[in-house]
Design a protein around this nucleic acid. Sequence first.
DNA 1: AATCCACAGGAAGTGCTGGGCG
DNA 2: CGCCCAGCACTTCCTGTGGATT
Length: 401
Amino acid sequence: MDKLDMIFERMLSSRIFRNREVLRPDHVPDELPHREEQILKLGAILAPALKGARPSNVFIYGQTGTGKTAVAKYVLRRLKAKAGDKVITAYVNCREADTNYRVLADLCSFLDIHVPFTGLSTAEVLRRFIKGLDRKGKLMIAVLDEIDALVKKSGDAVLYHLTRINASLERSRLSIIGITNDLKFTEYLDARVKSSLGEEELVFPPYTYEELKDILDMRAQEAFHEGVLEEGVIPLCAAIAAKEHGDARKALDLLRVAGEIAEREGATKVTEEHVRKARRELEKDRVVDVLRTLPLHSKLVLLSVYRLEKLRIREITTGEIYNLYKELCKALGLDPLTQRRVSDLISELDMLGILNARVISRGRYGRTRRIRLGISERSLKEGLMEDPSVRGLVHWSLLSS
DNA sequence: AATCCACAGGAAGTGCTGGGCG
DNA sequence: CGCCCAGCACTTCCTGTGGATT
């Protein structure tokens, strides 16, 4: 091995990580601690598939990072291993495929049916799906993950059709596993869909602090070299995640990023300080990432809020923002959007946590929203500076009066 | 008790994109 | 080719409202 090889080799062979992939959020491990009960229950529900019978539809509830997706994927994998070609398993993330059309198109792809990503009517895609599935003469088990996102955005029409599809199938059958982290969302569902989809229900409780520690311990053995984690690291990750509704994904993210930071610094050990840095970095990355990809007019709205805060305006309202926003548009030679639209943009920014907007009534002086910035000045600048069309305005906003 | 502000936020419609079908 | 479709960003028009002021 020559010197160059050694440089490459040092890069390649991490002193920290053995295999960081097992800390990634979409990794499904061979063992899921503290989910035995859910695994067995889901397995029991799906077991009839082995004899060619149609399992009941299942509804899975639980907060983010409680293992819903991992358990569903895990059980399906095991089932598939036993059943072989007799069953077709499908997984659709409804946050990504968040329209009726796309969900159906995604399902079709598991049957090797090509559908264009636009152009057909939804009814036509449904027809093709039914025809394609029936031709297979098999059972299909379809996981619809984050199903609440679909229903909130596009209604339950597709779910209605999918739950009734078995009536139109002669040789095949379809079972649906719906996953949601929003417990209240079934209120939006048609009663028939609700009862059909909820033939069986599974609840995933949040992980406790102790359980999170177990999960991290197990994964850390695979992910890190021996002895690189300082003693308090895993407890700290678990404690932070336990506070946020027992979110295992968060715990794993913290551990992974802490490791990455340690590696970048050339440290030989991962310390609690690395975890604290990781926490800050994860939060900042999230915000900056959202900011960067914001449409231009949302950025201008945001800059207006920023400017008004700089001017120490006591109560920033929709109207004040709109006035300033119009000026920014003029300065850039853009046609301003209507106030109605800007009001919606403010709501979107509120939902992203970038702004805090609260409806208040000032009596005689009307009903409006009081709006404040929900992120640090540093994140805001970092997120907006690289957009050439607003960079100048960021500087301008810094000047007072 | 009535008024009225400054909007919130629903409903419906428009124009455009990117694609299909016959 | 002309027409249709879904989705999106946006506009237009609208009704509703909490509470300080009259």
